[in-house]
Amino acid sequence: MSFIIRAAKPSDLQALYEMAKLTGGGFTNLPPDRNSLQAKLDRSAAAYAREDDTLGDDLFVLVLENTKTGEVRGTSQLFTKVGQNWPFYSYRLTMLTQHSKELDRTVRAELLSLTTDLEGSSEVGGLFLHPNERAGGLGLLLARSRYLFIAAHRPRFADKILAELRGIIDERGGSPFWDAVGGCFFGMSFQEADYFNAIHGNQFIADLMPKHPVYTAMLDESARKVIGLPHPNGRAAMRMLENEGFSYEGYVDIFDGGPTMTARVDNVRSIQNAKSRPVTEMDCKRGEKALLATGHLADFRCCYGAYEVDDKGISIDSLSAELLQVNQGDMIWNIPR
């Protein structure tokens, strides 16, 4: 397989823009707007160039490249500390229990409360794979390469991590959740609000969204039944996150009601299991399949390959060595596929 994960470069703007146009909406981290994408690439370049190995407000953009054609066919992003430039809002589902002695009745009401509980967390997001490449495990490579990047740069990430999954969007591109909640206060369609958020940030939510909890019983059924559900295209991503140790704790996106998954960084399985070893041989032919990664910051590269481990280090196949641009003695990270 000739695909490699690498740091995004300024020249990737057009490829990112073309992929952004394929997302179908509700994809805040990859808006089909050149200026916003350029700002992301600029911010990412600054993060890769920062030499201070500490936690900061960074964004790292990764891309999936077909090395045979030079085409960029996927992308993903890592935010090291959300909620620094503007609040990071979520709704959280809570339960209010009330009892009347006179009626001898207990009533439990489900509430949506606006919160910034997740501020300061790291985030994995912005994952998009070109529709023509959704086979052969490339989505898994794109997703799990982020955890190898975190393992290789652990001081730059927080102790908690989150992933927002796109919620339910109907056939007209609208959101039943937004129509029932946010749309009542903003006079904007879901597509308009989502696009505005992607370009300008969500400070307008703080300015206009009521701070009082919303009783879900007061929402129509079409909105209630999608709270905390991922978009059908995101179900596989949710399963991958659960396999990594992420869980759904009642946090949902303020725009489409999609689930926000959370975990402790050091408990994420791919980070826990990631090991760094020196390359001893580059002619492995029958070893187990793994994700292999090397390089610091802008030099980070990750691919699938065959490997064998012994007391001296790790043996990898020749194609992986070529893709990763490593020689004997270089250190590489690995996790089983």
Rank of each mutant, 00 (worst) to 15 (best):
C284N: 10
A236H: 08
F246C: 07
V326C: 08
I332R: 00
P232M: 09
E242T: 11
D253H: 04
N327V: 13
D311N: 12
M238H: 07
T260G: 07
H296L: 11
N334P: 03
M282S: 09
T294S: 14
G234Y: 10
P230M: 04
A306E: 11
G287W: 10
E244W: 03
M218E: 14
T262I: 15
D256N: 05
R277G: 01
G295D: 08
P230I: 05
A223I: 06
E308W: 01
Q325Y: 03
L291G: 00
C302N: 07
F255L: 15
S318A: 15
G313R: 03
S270A: 10
L291W: 05
A321F: 11
A223H: 05
T280G: 08
H296Y: 11
G245F: 02
V268M: 07
I332V: 15
D317R: 04
N334K: 08
A223K: 02
I254F: 10
G257Y: 04
G295I: 03
D220E: 13
E242F: 05
A293M: 09
T294D: 06
A237L: 11
Q328S: 08
F300V: 04
T280A: 01
A298E: 15
E288L: 09
H231C: 08
N273K: 12
G287T: 10
L241C: 10
V268N: 02
H296S: 14
V252N: 07
K275S: 15
C302G: 02
S247E: 11
S276A: 12
G257R: 06
E221T: 14
V226S: 02
S315F: 00
R239Y: 13
F300T: 08
A263C: 12
G258Y: 05
L292C: 09
E242Y: 00
S270G: 03
K275Y: 04
I227W: 02
L319V: 15
R264L: 14
D220F: 07
G258S: 11
G250N: 04
T294I: 03
R277I: 06
V252Q: 01
D256H: 07
D256P: 05
R277W: 09
F246M: 03
D266A: 14
